[in-house]
């Protein structure tokens, strides 16, 4: 059950469906099953990872700037087939999810995230943390992300960002 902000009249059934969406998303990425990641988004989705520096200044650039489910698939294909990177594991913790508003174009939610990175033969370290700003829609009976904006607190990334948030 996802928390609802004061004044947001969300039926328990909807909040349970949202909890299932967030749970399934985290379970999928938690197991590194990135091929299934695009399924959580609508075909015309917006997915972006940017810094608080850009976000607050209204600057449109991100580190990942995705405008469709197919582009999400291209990201995963690159991770699997084309990108050089040293072995690592990234652990995500998403919490404090709140349904903030129910609007004509979808449900607005926000959450906090923390990413921990573990390089081979190195201790685990905090990698990035920040906020998620989501818009979720009912896509033919399935809840999907129409928009996910990941805003990192840090202006900079330690080395490189390989995996999506």
């Amino acid at each position: 059950m996802i928390a609802a902000a004061p004044g947001v009249d969300a039926p328990p059934e909807l909040r349970a469906r949202l909890a299932d969406l967030y749970g399934a998303y985290d379970d999928t990425l938690g197991e590194g099953d990135y091929e299934r990641w695009p399924e959580f988004f609508t075909e015309a989705c917006v997915y972006k990872i940017t810094s608080r520096e850009n976000f607050d200044a209204g600057l449109p650039l991100g580190m990942m700037h995705v405008e469709s489910r197919s582009m999400l698939a291209d990201r995963i294909a690159a991770i699997r087939k084309t990108t050089l990177y040293a072995p690592r594991l990234v652990r995500r913790l998403v919490g404090s999810i709140v349904l903030r508003a129910i609007e004509p174009d979808g449900l607005r939610l926000a959450a906090s995230f923390a990413l921990f990175q573990t390089m081979l033969n190195e201790p685990s370290q905090v990698f990035l943390c920040g906020r998620l700003y989501d818009r979720v829609v009912d896509d033919a009976g399935t809840l999907r992300f129409a928009e996910r904006i990941c805003v990192t607190d840090a202006t900079l990334v330690p080395s490189s960002l390989i995996f999506p948030i």
Partner: peptide, 15 residues
């Protein structure tokens, strides 16, 4: 998307 810390190309260089 090709450039920066998560760039399709630049990640190779950073690593």
């Amino acid at each position: 998307n090709l450039f920066g810390p998560a760039g399709f190309v630049s990640v190779d260089d950073g690593e």
